[in-house]
């Protein structure tokens, strides 16, 4: 929260989105959207179903080619990068997909080592040490290393996915609905985990979520996708916004309960 007090002009922008236009099946999803993500902050992205939260994330990580607009990550326009240049950006970010997206034919430990094998010339013993450390960092037990994704619960898959996303110690972490489908206790633990990791590793986090508790517990600023546009601010700023959807979101029963605590 302390980060958001500083004037925006002095802070390094990690992700810069300008004039983003996205269309999906003939529907306009984003209509000239601008967004800045600053180093070291946790940005929560919210919006109703179909408002284009995931599309925004997918556009930034290069999985979705926008119709118009530019997206810069670490100062480089990712749509214009060649494969090799893109790799140098890709080693600096980690993505946690909604269901973990673990490679099903590999064990958890092998999954975590995939980025290391792909990009680093590490010795096997060192990779095994680091994989074990990542498991501890995300709070998975030792014996999870040998398990296959199909043998894990939903929460464990997300933790394993997070461990893989953190494998190369990225500067920037993308989380797509990290607490969706988790029970409240696991969700709280996951919030704390993200918060602690962000603090100790100094990560910049872009988090798509529906979970108001998560927003309150972890984020510095919130971006709301509403009417194909984006509005960014702290929770307190957004609660004063007159937009009916934002009002409903933060002042509905769930919103009040989450924010009151």
């Amino acid at each position: 929260m302390s980060m958001s007090d500083k004037p925006a002009a002095n802070r390094e922008v990690v992700v810069r989105v300008r004039g983003l236009v996205n269309e999906l099946g003939g529907n306009l999803i984003h209509d000239h959207v601008d967004l800045d993500l600053y180093r070291g902050e946790v940005l929560g992205v919210v919006g109703g179903s179909g408002s284009g939260k995931s599309v925004l994330l997918r556009s930034i990580v290069g999985l979705n080619r926008p119709r118009e607009g530019s997206i810069e990550v670490f100062g480089q326009d990712i749509s214009k990068l060649g494969e090799r240049a893109l790799h140098t950006v890709q080693v600096r970010w980690g993505v946690l997909f909604q269901e973990g997206a673990l490679f099903s034919s590999q064990t958890v430990a092998e999954n975590i080592q995939v980025p290391m094998r792909e990009y680093m010339k590490m010795s096997e013993p060192l990779m095994n040490e680091i994989a074990s450390m990542k498991l501890s960092m995300v709070g998975l037990p030792e014996d999870a290393a040998r398990k296959y994704p199909s043998e894990l619960s939903g929460g464990m898959k997300k933790r394993a996915g997070l461990a893989r996303a953190l494998a190369l110690d990225p500067d920037l972490l993308f989380l797509d609905e990290p607490t969706a489908g988790l029970d409240p206790i696991s969700a709280n633990q996951f919030d704390e985990l993200v918060h602690d990791l962000q603090k100790s590793l100094g990560l910049t986090v872009f988090m798509v979520t529906h979970d108001l508790d998560t927003l309150k517990a972890t984020t510095d600023r919130i971006a709301v996708l509403v009417n194909r546009k984006i509005k960014v601010g702290t929770i307190d700023e957004l609660r004063r916004d007159p937009d009916p959807w934002i009002q409903e979101y933060f002042s509905g029963v769930r919103g009040r309960a989450a924010l009151a605590s």
């Binding site: 430990a109 095994n128 040490e129 074990s132 960092m137 100790s200």
Partner: peptide, 16 residues
Amino acid sequence: LIHTIDQEHTAPPVVI
């Protein structure tokens, strides 16, 4: 960071 790793991580390396 050092504190977190030193405290939290006591498990042996994974076995592939």
